[in-house]
């Protein structure tokens, strides 16, 4: 019996691995979309209000910056437990991948906002100045110049964030989110089933690689420098 057959013979792997993979993909996909939807405007706000931004606002910049830093400095394990009441209020339960989306998104938004801010900061101020001289409104500069020119960097930021979300999602498995993390912990760690542990790791590695490859390809396609 080869090792491959041994893997397929393992009931846990055969029955639970596909489902766990699907759960992980679902919670990561939904929280990634929410993270970008919330984090990009936040990153734009951080950039616009910073000194030298489109509308420098010292107070707004420092308040938003402080909130983002607090969010980033909380370890995810603690954050996800701390927000349990909020999760229950939003989703109605604290169990399942749907519930995990709440702490995952809350954890990733400040992280992505900072990455988005630095991608926007990479756009040379000369381009913004040129757009202003040509009579652009601030909205036009934000969309057609800043975000569009920063797009390759923003795509890379999304890639990094999605990969981090996969890692966070394994932690969420500890408090009942399901997915590959939960499978690896309950069978691989608590029941010493090494095959399950290895299978989970392999799937995660493959998923992360795939995301990185796709993300890099998209960023390259968008980059005309």
């Amino acid at each position: 019996m080869s090792w491959w057959d041994a893997l397929l013979e393992n009931d846990i792997i055969r029955e639970r691995l596909p489902l766990a993979t699907l759960e992980t993909l679902e919670m990561v996909a939904v929280s990634s979309v929410l993270t970008v939807l919330l984090g990009l405007p936040l990153g734009m706000l951080l950039h616009a209000t910073s000194p030298g931004g489109l509308t420098p606002q010292r107070t707004v910049a420092s308040v938003v910056g402080f909130v983002v830093n607090v969010g980033r400095s909380l370890p995810f394990v603690i954050l996800m437990i701390a927000v349990l009441p909020f999760t229950r209020w939003v989703v109605g339960t604290t169990l399942g991948w749907q519930a995990a989306v709440v702490p995952l998104t809350l954890g990733a938004v400040p992280f992505f906002a900072r990455l988005a801010e630095s991608a926007l900061r990479e756009v040379s101020p000369g381009k913004v100045e040129a757009a202003r001289v040509m009579g652009s409104t601030r909205g036009k500069i934000l969309g057609a110049v800043l975000v569009r020119e920063a797009l390759p960097g923003l795509v890379s930021a999304v890639t990094v964030t999605v990969v981090s979300l996969i890692s966070f999602s394994a932690m969420a498995g500890v408090i009942g989110a399901g997915g590959l993390g939960a499978l690896a912990i309950s069978y691989g760690y608590q029941r010493f089933d090494t095959a399950v542990m290895v299978a989970c790791i392999v799937v995660i590695v493959v998923v992360v690689q795939a995301i990185q490859v796709v993300g890099d390809a998209v960023a390259r396609r968008l980059d005309h420098r």
């Binding site: 000369g126 381009k127 001289v133 040509m134 009579g135 652009s136 020119e149 968008l222 005309h224």
Partner: peptide, 20 residues
């Protein structure tokens, strides 16, 4: 903003949009 359209400006570092 509309008055600026009567001024064309050329820059040292050109400042073209790379994505366009």
């Amino acid at each position: 903003r509309s008055a600026r359209r009567r001024i064309g400006m050329v820059f040292q570092h050109v400042n073209l949009l790379d994505s366009r």
